[in-house]
Structure formats: structure tokens, C-alpha cells
Design a binder for these strands. Structure first.
Lengths: 351, 351
DNA sequence: ATTAGCACTCTGGCTTAGTGAGTGCTAATA
DNA sequence: TATTAGCACTCACTAAGCCAGAGTGCTAAT
């Protein structure tokens, strides 16, 4: 059987009404809603075909139809694309200017959650390609020194080091010099064991300090999943959609948000398999398409953003399958451009 | 009417059975459960009295009784106290040793949530009385310098400062010296405007840097409510208690956890009005006793902890009114002592 | 002061019947 | 051949009625 133009129109109509109502939609509704001027009986036949083809389904006999995952998929892939050009006339997202990246991220998820009425999350830039800017050792007291590590993008990391041997100012200065001449401008990939050995030799009795610093450097440049900056907002929005608000489902979802591990993993997938959806690194996972079992009744939309200097992060939106994909995608697009402009203009970011 | 010994026993019995079942408890149950050897009819009379006195109530005629807020209050205040000595044989809380305060806090809430099956939260130490240890300005590039501020308890704060005028190394050294000789060892209360003016004069053209640093110092020592370190765990535990799991209530509660502002305020009250409950800075708010409307169906137990050096923070547990107060209080007590021992031993903490 | 006994109340679960939305099929129509 | 009108049928949802169980309050007897 072939999916001709009329069937597409009907499918679109079904999906769109279902998006807003959340109720199964019947043939009569479509017959009136569209300007095809077809009787409900004809629509019924078409719907029967569409069901056979797997685009829609019935919750039970004698109920209206609801879109299947396959139906949604077609919808987001093909049927929405035409409107792609449409100006995204979304109100300015109003990101306050601030020099703290963390605050920006928190604001972004908050605004996005507010605008869309879905649950949102963001993971902060992973500094994959990030280069070391400078390091600084300062004496705190007799047996502790503080290592400050600044990477590109002004990501700052502090690390307290316990001393076995006391150290005087002159030696500290030497270590500082050593570290800065050797390491500055390198990415984590470029710092190899050979270099570290050399530095240790030159450091002599304080070689353990070098190890500590190098460890801290690694930690600073490459953030592990555990304390990857991850913020969420609008989790309670899921209560706005009856199909998700049911106690056990809501509980699972919110638990996922609290646990965050699974979500982070899911988002990370985005950066791997780019370019599935039309443009702009935006991806849509409908129901079981996402790798997490918990999300089988949800749709997840992810978008990667790029703050320049190799700082890439990912935004995600979680909502019911019947989410307003157009709106979400538009929101994400404008957000991307806004983030761009903010960070291209003033490069200030702390941690 | 007087609350004699027998009434107390019956009340205790009612509350304790209600704690475990969550169902209204009837006279027959009590008649069998206690060893008073009284018939249900007698119990009924006593219950009728207890109701008149306001300690228990009926959800509807011909249902059993449930404790009122007043009843719970009496229970936690008086009836539980006897067991106070009882060894808290709770399994060791198993806090991993780590030098990052943030991680400890996250662990604590997690463990506590797991142990108690309630929702938990913690606010990190506010460094009220905290003294400045040292500051350090480092040049990042032509028009940015990084200020590192270390306070007692090894709380580190970074602050990026934009320069209007370029600055050379010698000048930077001078500023560093100036800041350290003037400010080190002071609390925020001791740094007054007079000192700041003096320092600005000495700094000459770079006076604006001094302002920035002083601002950052203030921020470092005195954390504002906005980015007070605040962690939660086990929010989904509320779904385990039917009286809270109902969609609208659950939604409100979880929203409160996400918003966090109200919760922080509530916890802060703890530190103000100490010593309401028996020992050890532990306070119990039953239902409407707490200042937040959202919590009217919950009980909140808060405990302040002290890591020494003026670092005080607060832990909170939120659960249904029928929470296991004994267990919770015991958990909090052991936690307090454990936190104590950890931080008294090794004073390492970063941020 | 306590208890046995009884009438009464209320909830929750169950069944029943009725309604409305929607379908699928058949036969008539353009 | 594609469309439509018409009709029988299905299923979820709701309201009403009924019953059992748990629990109470009261009275009278111990």
C-alpha cells in the first residue's frame, strides 16, 4: 500500500489534534477539521489503511486513533520540515549577562522549561580539546599547598596538596616555573608520561607534588561523568501531562532526573551520532527510540551547543510523546544562536 | 480532663500502629495490641476522651482514629524521650574519605535518604565566622587577572577580574602584598570601609582591582542564599507514602525541592531558634508547624551540624507525618557525630 | 469502672444498566 | 471505481444500587 498525499494530510491532522488534546481522535473529527470535504466514512477507510501501515493505532476497538512511534517519526522527519524556514518568532530568551557559566546554564534550563512546559536538562561544556592556560602553586601553610589550574575558557580548578616534605618559597617558585614552561598550551592528550617523568626528575624530592598537580590537571581538563555539570529544571512539568503523571511513571521519571547518570549517558549519545534529524545537531528520540527504558512513554529532544574554544555541551528536553515538536525545535534553535552570540562577544567564564 | 498514664499508653499505641500501617486504627486493635487487658469498649471511651482533648481525630464517623498534629507533638516530645539513651545501633554510615566537601555532602544526603526512606536535603556550611587565610592575584592575560581567595576550612573561591588598565608583574606583586598584609586573618565583619578606602588609596590607579577583590572576598566568606550549596536526595521516596503520592501533592512537594528557595529558608530557621526539641539541635516540625504551606501534610526534621572552625550547616528530612521519628532522630545523631569525627581528623576541604 | 451487646454509620468493592463515541461493514450512489 | 449513508456492534466510562466489613456510640448489666 502506498502513502499517498491524502493519507499524509490525514495523518498530519490526526497527529496535530492529538498533540493538543491528548485524546484518541475519531474519523468524524478529522472529517470536519480538514478541508478535504470527505465524509467520516471515507476517513475511516483511510485510517484503517494508516493503521495497517503502522502509523496509527487504537488503544482499544471502538476508540479513536493515536499516533504510533512510527507515525510520530514520519511527522517530525517529513511533515514538519516544510515549515523549517518559518521565522522563529519566539520571544527573546532573555539570558542575563553574567560571567559565571554555571549561572548561565541554570538560567538556560529554567527559561527553556518555562517556555516549553516540559522538563529540561543541560550538561555543561566538556572541555575535550581544552588547553591548559597556566598553573599556580601557592603555599597555604607548612604542609599544604594549593594548586590552581586554569584552562582555556577560563575554567578554574583548585586542588589542595598535602606535603610530605616541607618546601620553601624558592623551591615553590622553581616548581611553578617548571610546570608552566612544560605544560602550558597543551591539551590533555598532549601531556604524556614521558614529559611527566622528566618533570619529576627535575623536581627532585618534590616529585610527588608534580604527580598531584598533573592528576589535578587531568581532572580539570577532562571532567568525569560523576561531576559533570548537569542541571535540570521543570521536572514537575511532567505532572501536566496525564499520560505521565500517573504515580508510578512519574516516580520513575523523576527518579531518573535525580539519578542523572542515565540521562547524562543518553545525552552523550547525541554528540556521537550526529545529524540524524534534519538540521543543526538537533535530535529527536521518540518513545523506545531512546536507550532508556524509563523514557518509553516520552520523547526526548536533544541539541548540542558550542561555546567556541572546543566547549561543547548538550541540552535536552523531555516531554510526552505528543510534545509540540515544532515549538521545541524552534526554541532550541534560537537558544543555540543566543548562546553563541553571548559567548562569542564576551569570553568571560568562570567555574 | 486529665491525661493520665493509661491515656498516654493508649495514645502511644495508636500512634505507633498508625506509623506502620498508615490506616486509621480502631479500638479493637488497641485492645488486643496493648497488654492493658481492656475491652474494646473501654478503649473506645478513652479514645473518645483523647479525641475531645485533641490528640487524635477521625477521618469520618465510624472510622478508626488517626493522630492529630498535637498528638504527634506529644509523642515526639514526651513519649519518645525515654528511649533516648538507647544505643543507636544504626549501621555505620560509611562516608568515604574524600577531600571535597561537596562530595561529602552529596554522600550524606544520599545515605540518609537510603537509610530512612524519606526525602533528604542538606545545606553546606555557611562560613559565618570564617577568617580569610590568604589571597592571590594571578595574571591570566593582558586584561584579566584571577583572584584566588582561600578562607579558613580551605574554602577556595575564584574570581575573574577585568582590567581597565594593563598591569605589570611588579604592580601585581605589590597588590598581592597589600591584600595579604591587610586582610589575612580577618572575618568579614572585621573588614570595614575604612580599611578598604586606605587600600584603594595605596593601590592608586588599580584601585578598582581592590574593589573587585574585596567584593569577591565578601562573596567567598558569606555565601548568599542563591548559590548556597544545597543538595537533595530521595525525593522520589515520597511516592512510597500514599498520603503524599497523590499527584497534586507530590507535584507540589517535588516542585518545592526543585525550587529549593523555600526549603533553604525553612532550614535556616533552624539555626535561629535552637533548642526546641530535647537534645542536640534537632528539631521536628509537624504538619502546619513548619512555615511552608506545602508541607502541611509532612513532617520535617532538621539538624544542624558543625564541622568546626565556624562551619555550620543544616540537614533536613521530609516525610509523611507518620514518619519513624525515632529512627530519623537516631540517624541524624549518629550522622552528626560521624561528620564531627571525619572533619576533626583531617581538615581537608576544597570547593 | 468496666464490659457486653446492639443499632447505627460510613467506606470500599462489586455488579448492573445506560450512554456516547467510535468503528467496520454493506449496500447504495455519483 | 471512489465515496457515502446507514446500521449494528464494541468498548470505556459513569451512575446507581447493594452488600459486607470495620468501627463507633450508647445503654444496660456486671
Amino acid at each position: 500500500m502506498e502513502l499517498d498525499e491524502r493519507k499524509k494530510i490525514i495523518l498530519t491532522a490526526i497527529i496535530q489534534t492529538y498533540l493538543t488534546t491528548g485524546e484518541p481522535v475519531g474519523s468524524r473529527t478529522i472529517s470536519k477539521y480538514t478541508d478535504l470535504n470527505l465524509s467520516s466514512a471515507t476517513i475511516r477507510n483511510e485510517m484503517s489503511d494508516l493503521e495497517e501501515m503502522g502509523y496509527i493505532m487504537q488503544p482499544h476497538t471502538s476508540a479513536g486513533r493515536i499516533p504510533s512511534d512510527k507515525g510520530y517519526r514520519l511527522y517530525v522527519d517529513e511533515l514538519i520540515r516544510q515549515k523549517d524556514q518559518e521565522v522563529s518568532d519566539i520571544k527573546e530568551l532573555m539570558i542575563e549577562k553574567t560571567d559565571r557559566l554555571e549561572k548561565v546554564l541554570k538560567q538556560v534550563v529554567k527559561i527553556l522549561a518555562f517556555n516549553t512546559n516540559y522538563a529540561t536538562m543541560i550538561i555543561g561544556p566538556a572541555y575535550h580539546q581544552n588547553r591548559l592556560k597556566f598553573t599556580q602553586l601557592s603555599k597555604v601553610n607548612e604542609n599544604q599547598i594549593l594548586a590552581i589550574i586554569v584552562a582555556e575558557g577560563n575554567l578554574v580548578k583548585n586542588h589542595m596538596i598535602e606535603l610530605k616534605e616541607p618546601i620553601d618559597e624558592a623551591e615553590l617558585l622553581k616548581l611553578n616555573l617548571l610546570l608552566n614552561t612544560q605544560l602550558n598550551g597543551l591539551t590533555i592528550g598532549e601531556i604524556n608520561l614521558n614529559m611527566i617523568q622528566q618533570m619529576k626528575q627535575q623536581a627532585g624530592i618534590h616529585s610527588s607534588v608534580i604527580s598531584s598537580v598533573v592528576d589535578a590537571v587531568a581532572e580539570a581538563i577532562q571532567i568525569d561523568e560523576e561531576d559533570m555539570p548537569f542541571y535540570t529544571s521543570g521536572t514537575t512539568n511532567i505532572f501536566k501531562y496525564p499520560e505521565l503523571a500517573e504515580s508510578s511513571k512519574a516516580s520513575e521519571l523523576i527518579f531518573a532526573f535525580e539519578e542523572k547518570r542515565e540521562l547524562v549517558e543518553m545525552l552523550m549519545e547525541n554528540s556521537l551520532e550526529e545529524g540524524r534529524s534534519p538540521g543543526a545537531d538537533i535530535q529527536v528520540y521518540i518513545g523506545n527510540e531512546s536507550s532508556i527504558q524509563t523514557m518509553k512513554d516520552c520523547s526526548v529532544v536533544t541539541a548540542s551547543y558550542d561555546l567556541g574554544k572546543g566547549m561543547k555541551g548538550i541540552i535536552g528536553i523531555i516531554g510526552p510523546k505528543r510534545m509540540d515538536y515544532e515549538k521545541v525545535v524552534n526554541n532550541l534553535k534560537t537558544l543555540k544562536t543566543q548562546l553563541d552570540s553571548i559567548f562569542r562577544k564576551n569570553g568571560k567564564t568562570n567555574t
